[in-house]
């Protein structure tokens, strides 16, 4: 075999491998989309139709008509945006202190925050439930009537901070560390206070990092299921993840898979769009959260 032939063969094998990888990665989502455009009879056709023969938007109309699901979508949006905004603003302050300011006990706090990014929610969901039901249990009082947290969006925003806040703080701390120290020195020479330095010099520089971290915090909150299911009772506060998980039809024997897949696609599309637009940032943020010191 000549060198040229060998090269061609290698190329064929390589692109064959690429096709296999892409098929593996994308087929399940392709299948959800195909299923979401099938009518209620086509979805249960045997043998399976790999391409929809009569595509229909009927499942999407059913999702749109499902009031609970639409409320869930709205709740998810409100909760995820609030959590992201809160954890970015609170986390940025903490990250500035950890990344730029000298003070005693810094390492202890830094490692606690790193450990907190891996906190198992299941370990506290029970005791947190007692807190959500009666916030004053912390000081051994009963204010479940005066301060109802159960089945509110506030309960979710508050508890989601457990995983979003350590994450944003950690990633932003690393970002602040990476900025050159000449910046502050110059500001100090010009007579700026430490707070002015933070607010007027460093914060504007941090915008790209804030966007990356914000995207990931948003995704974390959007995808949360355990707390959303436990701390809510109905769609006054319930988000879209439990809505998808417990989505079922009128008839318990026949699960409306096409409608469920339509709902699944609706919930996933915003995330896919985000990923397409901010691919680089998301990859940077993911690896910064895990690998970089």
């Amino acid at each position: 075999m000549s060198r040229k032939q060998k090269e061609i063969l290698q190329n064929i094998l390589f692109y064959g491998l690429l096709v296999v990888i892409c098929f593996y990665l994308l087929f399940p989502f392709y299948w959800a989309i195909v299923s979401s455009f099938k009518s209620s009879s086509d979805i249960f056709a045997v043998p399976v139709q790999y391409f929809p023969t009569n595509p229909t938007i009927e499942p999407y109309q059913k999702v749109y008509a499902n009031g609970d699901f639409m409320k869930g979508l709205l709740n998810s949006t409100i909760v995820s945006f609030s959590v992201t905004a809160l954890s970015l603003s609170i986390g940025a302050f903490a990250a500035y202190a950890l990344g730029r300011l000298p003070f005693r006990g810094k390492n202890t706090i830094l490692y606690t925050i790193l450990a907190m990014t891996m906190f198992p929610s299941i370990a506290i969901v029970g005791s947190l439930f007692t807190f959500i039901r009666n916030p004053c249990v912390i000081v051994a009082l009963d204010c479940s009537e005066q301060l109802p947290l159960f089945n509110t969006k506030l309960a979710l925003v508050l508890t989601y901070l457990i995983f979003t806040l350590p994450f944003t703080t950690w990633v932003l701390t690393n970002f602040f560390k990476s900025l050159p120290s000449e910046l502050e020195q110059a500001a100090m020479v010009d007579g700026a206070t430490p707070f002015q330095t933070f607010y007027m010099i460093l914060l504007p520089l941090t915008m790209p990092a804030l966007i990356t971290t914000g995207l990931l915090a948003f995704i974390l909150a959007w995808n949360e299921f355990l707390f959303a299911m436990t701390f809510t009772l109905d769609f006054q506060a319930r988000t879209v993840q439990p809505a998808i998980a417990f989505f079922s039809g009128q008839d318990a024997r026949e699960i409306p898979w096409n409608t469920i897949m339509a709902a699944s696609v609706i919930v996933t599309v915003p995330l896919i769009v985000m990923v397409l637009f901010f691919q680089r940032r998301i990859v940077d943020g993911l690896t910064a959260g895990a690998v970089k010191g």
Binding site: I21, C22, L25, L26, P28, F29, W31, A32, I219, W222, N223, F225, Q241, P242, I244, A245, F247, I260, M261, S264, V267, T268, L271, I272, M274, V275, Q279, I282, V283
Partner: peptide
């Protein structure tokens, strides 16, 4: 393409 499975929420991929 690599990011697609990652972007699908766990609950959604479980149902898928």
């Amino acid at each position: 393409a690599v990011l697609v499975p990652w972007a699908v929420p766990t609950v959604v991929s479980a149902r898928m």
